[in-house]
């Protein structure tokens, strides 16, 4: 059951993310970008979260409890940091673009005229 819920959630997030990434509005593009990374992180969690129920401490392992996979969590942490960095860079670019052309519409006629 839980697997199905996760699969559905990942699918929906991917759908929303890809759709937003193709919008004209750059802010929505940035939001889609963040959602896509969230979907991938969720995929990582789904890959290893349901193996065990306890935190992977040495005590828990010694007590013979089934612990969840710590490596997955380390990977997700790194992936979150990387995606956060890229996301802030994207937002910075969009900020400068919006200041330069006074719009966040990527197909603004006024801007096209400016460039040609």
């Amino acid at each position: 059951m839980m697997d199905f819920v996760f699969a559905l959630a990942i699918g929906i997030l991917f759908g929303i993310g890809v759709f937003q990434l193709m919008r004209r509005d750059l802010i929505k593009v940035a939001i889609g970008f963040a959602i896509l990374f969230a979907a991938v992180n969720l995929f990582f969690i789904a890959a290893g979260a349901f193996e065990g129920e306890f935190a992977p401490y040495a005590d828990n392992v010694a007590a013979g409890l089934t612990t969840s996979d710590p490596l997955i969590q380390a990977l997700i942490l790194t992936a979150i940091v990387v995606s956060f960095g890229s996301f802030s860079l994207v937002l910075g670019f969009i900020y400068i673009i919006s200041r330069r052309y006074e719009t966040v519409d990527s197909e603004d006629k006024h801007v096209t005229a400016l460039k040609n």
Partner: peptide, 9 residues
Amino acid sequence: LKYILISSV
């Protein structure tokens, strides 16, 4: 901007 979006995909 274009590259970072595409490369992030």
